[in-house]
Design a protein around this nucleic acid. Structure first.
Lengths: 160, 160
DNA sequence: CTACTTGCAAATGCTTTGCAAAATT
DNA sequence: AATTTTGCAAAGCATTTGCAAGTAG
């Protein structure tokens, strides 16, 4: 993957730097996680890699541009990034528990249908999509039935 | 609708204020638009209604809580709000042109299917969802074919 | 050696908050 | 009269940016 990064960088006349490789490395070693800039930054500090946060900001945006990362927004007031599977480039759907925050990723075959339906209805050529589903995970459903309407509501509420 | 707002406020022990009604009014008179706090604020100034921006922030969040507005995020670095159809409470999908930014709202019947599919696969009870589709609107497709790869890329890239 | 990248600190922009004054109940 | 809401200014955060110093090609 580092080789791929070097190639992409060369191709687009960007320079190969240790910082860029280290930042991609963090994502490669945190597969499946959705990291915010601060988390990446802290992880680098943990590993005694001295980089500035500004560089992390610049690097993740570059990695998005080069197709290594996807920029995510769960309405928390910050952006998160996840590694893209460069072989399929396929996006998945995020299913988020509004009580405990657990995020499950799935891939529904129904997505293709809805995309073609929307394309047909609007005349738009759909390039990509962002599908989030909010609800209660199985564990939180159990708790919910034990103590229904128990007050503390997790303040997740955002859509787009 | 103002009656409905007054009832909701009373029901939850909030007070009926001119500011809250005015802010809801802005949305009622801008149906179909996705307004940011600053836009609401400016619209109020245009109408010579003196309110502080802090009050707008507080009011829109309250209106979300009361079920009058939905909070949206198109990855621009700010939140937008749209009026909820309180009779159906149904959400629609946003189809966004990544070149000109035009947003079309549609309602695909496929959504029900994908929701039940996801529910089945994950065990989550889905309460609501947030579905965004990005691509090119018909007009921008034409321009694209005239001047393909013409440089200026609209920096829309965010997902969740 | 030239051009790009980094680090730092300052700046930006949206949103939140503390508190006294104003308004609602 | 008691309590909530508002306005204002300050504070809070995530993110961006200007610029000099460092580094890749």
């Amino acid at each position: 993957m580092y080789e791929e990064l070097r190639n992409e960088l060369k191709k687009r006349k960007y320079r190969i730097t240790a910082q860029r490789e280290m930042i991609l490395k963090i994502f490669l070693e945190s597969k499946g996680r959705h990291l915010g800039v601060d988390e990446v930054y802290r992880e680098l500090l943990n590993r005694n890699v001295r980089v500035s946060k500004a560089t992390v900001y610049r690097a993740v945006e570059l990695l998005v541009e080069l197709g290594f990362l996807r920029k995510l927004n769960f309405g928390e007031g910050l952006y998160r990034y996840e590694l893209i599977d460069r072989s399929t480039r396929e996006s998945h759907q995020h299913v988020i528990c509004q009580k405990c925050g657990k995020i499950v990723e799935i891939n529904s075959e129904q997505v293709k249908k809805i995309v073609s339906d929307i394309s047909e209805k609007t005349g738009y050529v759909i390039k990509w999509h962002d599908l989030k589903f909010y609800g209660l995970c199985p564990e939180c459903q159990k708790e919910e039935s034990k103590a229904p309407e128990s007050g503390q509501r997790t303040e997740i509420s955002e859509e787009g």
